[in-house]
C-alpha cells in the first residue's frame, strides 16, 4: 500500500518474503472461501449420487476390512464392533487421503487459472484440501448415529475429534502442496502419489488396533507416522478406546506442521515458474 491508500504492486524477479506471502493469503481469504466452494461444486455438479459416493467410499473399505479382519482373522478390538472400529478410523484417514489427492492435482487441474490470472497460488492446494469438509460432515453424520445404536452415545470426549481432524488437514495441505508443485514439471507423480497413499494406509492403525503390533514397531508407527495419533484420538472421541500418549500427539502435530512448512516452502520456491512450464 502506498501512502494515500491505493494499492501499490511491485513486480520483480525476486520471490516475495514469507511474511508477505502469509499476509497476502490473509488479505485474500475471501477468495479462499470462493475456491473451496468452487472445488466442491465442481466435484459434485454432474454426479447424481454425489453424496452417495462420499459415504460409500469409506464405508465400503470398512465393510471390506470387517470381512477380512473382523470375520476371517478376528482381530481383537476391545469390545468395539469391528465395523465401528474400522469405519471411525477410515473417516479420519479419508480426510487425509482425499485432501492430499485433491491438493496434489490442484495446480494441474486448474492450469488455466494459473496461466490466465493472478492470485496467491497457495490458495489452490489449500482450498483443494479444505474441500473435503462436506465429505467429512456427511461421513460423521453417518458414523455418530451408528455408534449410538451400537451402544456408544456421544460424550464430552467427542471434542477430541477436532484436533484429530486438524492434523490430517495440515498433512494433506503440506504434502499436497509439495506434490502439486512437482506435478507441474513431472506428471508421473500424479500416478505415483495415490499409490503411495494406498500403501501408507497399512502403516496406520485403521484396520487393526495398535496393540496387535509387536513392541518396538508400535513406537515406529506411533512416532514415525503422523497419521497414527489422529486415528487413535478420533477413535477415542467416538468409541472411547484409549488415547495415545501425549508425547505421541505432540510429535504428530509437530511433524505435520514441519511438513506443512516444508511443502509450502518448496511450493513458493518453484511457484514463479508455474506459468512457464504448464
Amino acid at each position: 500500500m502506498s501512502l494515500d491508500g491505493t494499492p501499490l504492486i511491485r513486480i520483480r524477479a525476486k520471490d516475495p518474503g514469507f511474511i508477505e506471502t502469509v499476509g497476502e493469503l490473509l488479505v485474500t481469504r475471501e477468495l479462499l472461501l470462493v475456491l473451496v466452494v468452487r472445488q466442491i461444486k465442481m466435484r459434485y455438479a454432474q454426479t447424481a449420487f454425489g453424496t452417495f459416493w462420499i459415504v460409500i467410499q469409506p464405508l465400503l473399505s470398512a465393510v471390506l476390512y470387517t470381512l477380512v479382519f473382523g470375520l476371517f482373522v478376528k482381530v481383537p478390538t476391545a469390545g468395539v464392533p469391528y465395523v465401528l472400529f474400522s469405519y471411525s478410523g477410515m473417516v479420519v484417514w479419508t480426510v487425509f487421503s482425499q485432501g492430499f489427492d485433491r491438493a496434489g492435482i490442484s495446480l494441474v487441474q486448474d492450469e488455466r487459472l494459473i496461466t490466465k490470472t493472478y492470485f496467491p497460488r497457495l490458495h489452490l492446494p489449500i482450498s483443494a484440501a479444505l474441500s473435503v469438509a462436506p465429505d467429512l460432515a456427511i461421513s460423521t453424520a453417518l458414523l455418530l448415529p451408528v455408534a449410538w445404536i451400537l451402544g456408544f452415545p456421544p460424550q464430552l470426549r467427542l471434542l477430541w475429534a477436532l484436533p484429530a481432524i486438524a492434523v490430517p488437514l495440515l498433512l494433506a495441505t503440506g504434502a499436497g502442496s509439495l506434490v502439486a508443485s512437482l506435478n507441474i514439471r513431472w506428471r508421473d507423480l500424479r500416478q505415483a502419489a495415490p499409490f503411495l497413499v494406498q500403501i501408507f494406509v497399512w502403516a496406520t492403525p485403521v484396520a487393526y488396533p495398535l496393540e496387535v503390533v509387536p513392541g518396538k514397531w508400535r513406537d515406529v508407527l506411533l512416532f514415525g507416522n503422523p497419521m497414527t495419533a489422529p486415528v487413535l484420538v478420533f477413535r477415542h472421541a467416538v468409541v472411547g478406546t484409549p488415547l495415545p500418549s501425549l508425547s505421541a500427539i505432540w510429535v504428530s502435530l509437530g511433524s505435520s506442521l514441519l511438513l506443512l512448512l516444508f511443502g509450502t516452502m518448496v511450493f513458493r520456491s518453484v511457484e514463479k515458474t508455474f506459468a512457464d512450464y504448464i
Binding site: S2, T6, P7, L8, I9, R10, I11, R12, A13, R112, L113, I114, T115, K116, T117, Y118, K272, T273, A275, D276
Partner: peptide, 26 residues
C-alpha cells in the same frame, strides 16, 4: 498481470489491477 515472473527489472503498478488475458478465465 503477475501471471509470469520477469527474469530481471521491475514494474510498479498503482491501483487495483484487473487482467483479462482470455475470455472465460475461472
Amino acid at each position: 498481470a503477475r501471471v509470469v515472473r520477469p527474469t530481471s527489472g521491475e514494474a510498479l503498478l498503482r491501483g487495483r489491477v484487473g487482467s483479462l488475458l482470455e475470455v472465460g478465465t475461472g
